[in-house]
Amino acid sequence: MQPEKLLSIVNLDKSYGNHHPVIKKLSMDLYAGELVAIIGRSGAGKSTLLHMINGTISTTAGDIIAFPDSDTPQKTHLLKGKALRHWRSQCGMIFQDFCLVPRLDVITNVLLGRLSDTGTLRSLFKFFPKKDVERAIELLEWTGLINHALQRAENLSGGQSQRVAIARALMQTPRILLADEPVASLDPKNTHRVMEALQEISAQNIAVMVNLHSIEQVKQYCSRVVGIASGEIIYNGSPDGLTEDIQQRIYANPAS
């Protein structure tokens, strides 16, 4: 059975002001159950791409279409207000610097994933429904952080923080998970745990899109890899097909 297509990006352009374009005529699709790595030099537009999908950076031209094969496809770059927030709640995001709320305890940080589905009054006073708390506990157990549930997020190590961030993203019950260099500031052991978690998530029929720096990680964990150089796709396919030559072209100096 063909997996469900969750996202399709068509001829996407992005430029900041009159400067050099960051993304040029980029087209790609995203299917449920995939773990897609995005690789490229820093400044190649990987981060910008993820943020445009999430709707935190505006697009210049082109379409980002969510659920293109369903009855209700959405052009996410045109969404505003409540609809945009709803889309963001369906597409989780993980950052290199975690972006947790430092003074809150871990379990509350995880519960924040449900903000967009919690009533204003309830969420103002931090009274989350019992079933959300139960789910947060489940997720914390899965990430192995149940013993830290009542610790403040500021007291966690980098790897622990990233796992909390993943739990928070899963709390949203997303269809798509975007991870912006989730392992860039982690040591090898924590990198392994985080990447394994992402792999497990993608096995649950969720599309995971992750910015990575290391080719080894791509080959070890990912099902597909997209190489970007100067805002254009150089390679889109299985990690096994990533030859030396293609790698050279992806990481080549754009000036040459």
Binding site: S89, L104, G113
Partner: peptide, 27 residues
């Protein structure tokens, strides 16, 4: 930072203030 995280998960402006900024400034 917390505000960015909350924005990405679809929190409204009020919630971004409540959870992104308020815990930092409350003390």
């Amino acid at each position: 930072k917390p505000v960015r995280g909350l924005r990405a998960l679809g929190a409204s402006r009020l919630m971004r203030m409540r959870y992104g900024l308020w815990p930092q400034v409350a003390p």
